[in-house]
Design a binder for these strands. Structure first.
Lengths: 234, 234
DNA sequence: AGCACGCTTCGCGGCCGGGCGAAACGTGCC
DNA sequence: GGCACGTTTCGCCCGGCCGCGAAGCGTGCT
């Protein structure tokens, strides 16, 4: 049904509900080492009666988290598959996750990249911060708006006024950058702004991947706007 | 409290409970793109009233899944950190997970390890497969049984007959190996068999962890039993 | 100041679901 | 067959919490 699509709210809630009961959580944790255990043992592990345990196991079974294997008068339960095991592992060991598949192992990616069609990374954060600091960009009730003097500054820095003009009508919204943990500009404004920078040659796309490479000229012009990177580009 | 320790049942259930409500799940999903959204917008996204949404947001906040940022009369909510984002990503995209953070990053662990006191890993799978292929091990109605000629073969390969004899009376059961996705021998038979291999020096325990290290001699003797690893030990 | 608006807090009704004991079902053992 | 045992099903009670409307609080606009 849903092969690679993100789960909807009900499916996500369904998973959560299965984990939400300490008794069920205890059962799953007891099975996390890959063992296969009879219902009674899981009942003891969970600290509940046999009847209660049976109901929980039924739910976990129907929820697809467990598998069963009847043998004699025992019913041996196990985690359904390694996908479930992996899921629990990520949930149960939340602290020792390194940083997830290296969000910014690549320095170029860390510096600047596209995030859903707008600029992210250190440069994205610096752009947002610089524009806000000078008042070129302001948070309105309906989102981020580029101010008139901001438009003039962009034009003065060398962007064609035909490019700058439409930006004034667009709204942006703050988009949190995972590697930077600081806001950068997203939303329609962010998209258009990035497109403008690319168009002007201040940035160009890396041949592969999402990295965006600032040109020396682009950096100088951005500096005119108050955009400064915390550490110099290497 | 629990820095790198696995979560206990209550902590796991707590996380689950936070996800268990469709309204909360919808809010989290709405924030999964890294955006920052005011409470009202999240209420609309979740399809609940402002009061209900506020209660949910409070719970998510206290649960550590969200962060807030007051601005004017709006309160902008966002995912608490990239750890939460990674967590939701694993939960919400369960099908396209590559292979999980390498359940057997350690080659030794991948090759052979103990799984609830019996042998698992490639070697465990190969042992089970080899014995089954030669008919030394058969699936009876009550589980896996070592056949008489299997016992002889073990003895011929160098196990003391006093060690082999008790094995004939024990039953094993198939135990799914996460890294291999193939059956290996568990149950009392699996436990005793592994103990025998350790006792004979064909295997030894790694100083730390659950890895089991086969000796060269042990591998040769296992090969006599039809046990072969798919790729040679490095 | 006054109003509008976003959000939170409070109080209430309703329902889902966990817990248990008792009973039923099925299997292994003597 | 009869008993013991593991497990499931049934019926019941009760606590937690989801949902809402109404009221309270704080901020922005004019």
């Amino acid at each position: 049904m849903t092969q690679a699509m993100p789960l909807n709210r009900y499916q996500l809630a369904e998973i959560g509900a299965l984990l939400a009961e300490p008794a069920r959580a205890a059962m799953l944790l007891a099975l996390m080492d890959g063992t296969t255990r009879p219902a009674g043992e899981l009942a003891r592990a969970a600290g509940v009666g046999a009847a209660t345990a049976s109901a929980h196991l039924k739910r976990l079974l129907e929820g697809g988290l467990l598998g069963v294997h009847a043998q004699g008068r025992h019913r041996y339960y196990r985690l359904a598959d390694d996908e479930v095991a992996a899921l629990l592992e990520t949930l149960a060991l939340p602290r020792q996750r390194p940083a997830l598949p290296a969000p910014a192992a690549d320095p170029a990616l860390r510096r600047a990249r596209s995030c859903y069609r707008h600029l992210a990374g250190e440069l994205g954060v610096a752009l947002c911060g610089g524009l806000l600091e000078r008042g070129y960009l302001r948070t309105a009730s309906d989102g981020l708006r580029l101010q008139a003097d901001g438009g003039e500054a962009l034009a003065a820095a060398g962007l064609a006024s035909s490019t700058v003009q439409p930006l004034l009508a667009l709204r942006g919204r703050g988009c949190l950058d995972w590697t930077e943990r600081r806001l950068h500009v997203g939303g329609p404004l962010g998209v258009a702004l990035t497109a403008a920078l690319l168009d002007a040659g201040w940035l160009r796309r890396a041949p592969r991947g999402r990295a965006l490479l600032p040109s020396g000229d682009g950096l100088r012009r951005l500096a005119m706007l108050g955009v400064r990177l915390d550490d110099p580009p290497r």
